[in-house]
Nucleic acid binder design. Structure first.
Lengths: 197, 197
DNA sequence: ACCATTCGTTAACACTGTAAAGCACAACCG
DNA sequence: CGGTTGTGCTTTACAGTGTTAACGAATGGT
């Protein structure tokens, strides 16, 4: 009961994607993906270097999705945009834990030497965050500083919060949004110019 | 050139521990650990449920070490203790990345129903952190609130910072301490009572 | 001396990722 | 039309993995 379509890198990655979502990262094998496509495992090697390369393809498409979710955010102020992006990141993580677990298997490279849309999606997602931080600094709502440093710090804290929520610490789910809010809001508060009182 | 000692759970876990440090988590196999002990793989099953259980043993011993590093911290104030614990956590992570990567394979359980030293080391490490937070709140240097929530938030942010540093983002190593400081100091700043100015 | 138990071994199963060789079919060229 | 070339997949194979079942040797007790 396998449907045999024309093989391609995209098809393979798409199938791996859905299998990761449905069965978890550890349960996905190259042979399994091939079988789901009605094909034997070595056939995939014409389109994919190895298993890691296949997963890299899935990760790339995920960063693309994350970036898209950033771009739909409507915010009143630059600072609010920073906060909403952090929330969007956690939302993304909680929606598909297996995918979130995977995207950091590959070290993103944030050295921006070339320009344009051919940058890896991870880099573009990061740049989007950094822009929001920069705007909030120009705005005067965040204290001046290195935007790269601050956006990485925000990302790190957000990532940690998401990881902690996913670790299922038997805390009861009502804690989830509170932990996230505590991390993000207080970090932003610490980074902001003091509002006396 | 294998030295064959009396087998035990502790011996197995210790050997797995050093092999993880030396060769990385992915390179460690049950068969490999057995061979290093001069024994065949099925022999381990008398002392260990399965591979995951073996790793769980290593993780437990690591939390014990982390806890020990917390207990040697000398701080002038409760708030300073909170900051130093966060730094100790990151120091621990950077010292042995493979071990840090592993300890969160298992969801720690923070429900404290029993008392005393028979609690899992992860729980005791967390409680140590929560106590410091509580002291800082009693002290008046942290705004009042749920100590559990705040200490989890701090842990989450710290964990995220460590993960980000370990991801080797091609950022140049001078960024490492800066990112950490940005996350921790600003989060603590956000959690503190404002000091007008 | 025999029995029982403990502690390890060997053999086997069902997987995994990956490489080499082979085979079937379509396209092209004379 | 017949032969050649090449593409796309399969079969086969290898070296691993975790794990289970059956077997064996040594040890201690009665």
């Amino acid at each position: 009961m396998v449907e045999r379509v024309q093989l391609s890198r995209e098809i393979i990655i798409a199938r791996a994607h859905t299998m990761i979502v449905e069965q978890g990262l550890d349960a996905v094998s190259l042979r399994g993906v091939a079988a789901a496509l009605g094909v034997t495992a070595p056939a995939l090697y014409a389109y994919v270097d190895d298993k890691l390369d296949m997963l890299r393809g899935v990760a790339e498409s995920e960063f693309e999705r994350l970036l898209a979710s950033f771009e739909t955010i409507q915010a009143d102020s630059p600072l609010e945009r920073v906060r909403l992006q952090a929330h969007a990141y956690v939302q993304y993580a909680l929606a598909d834990p297996a995918l979130f677990q995977m995207i950091f298997l590959f070290r993103p490279n944030f050295e921006v030497h070339s320009e344009g849309d051919d940058l890896p999606a991870a880099t573009r997602a990061y740049l989007t965050g950094a822009q929001a931080v920069e705007a909030a600094m120009a705005d005067g709502s965040l204290r001046p500083g290195d935007p790269m440093l601050v956006s990485l710090a925000l990302w790190a804290a957000t990532h940690g919060a998401a990881s902690m929520l996913l670790a299922q610490l038997n805390l009861g789910p009502e804690y989830e949004s509170q932990i996230l809010a505590t991390v993000i809001d207080n970090l932003v508060r610490g980074l902001s110019v003091p509002l006396d009182s």
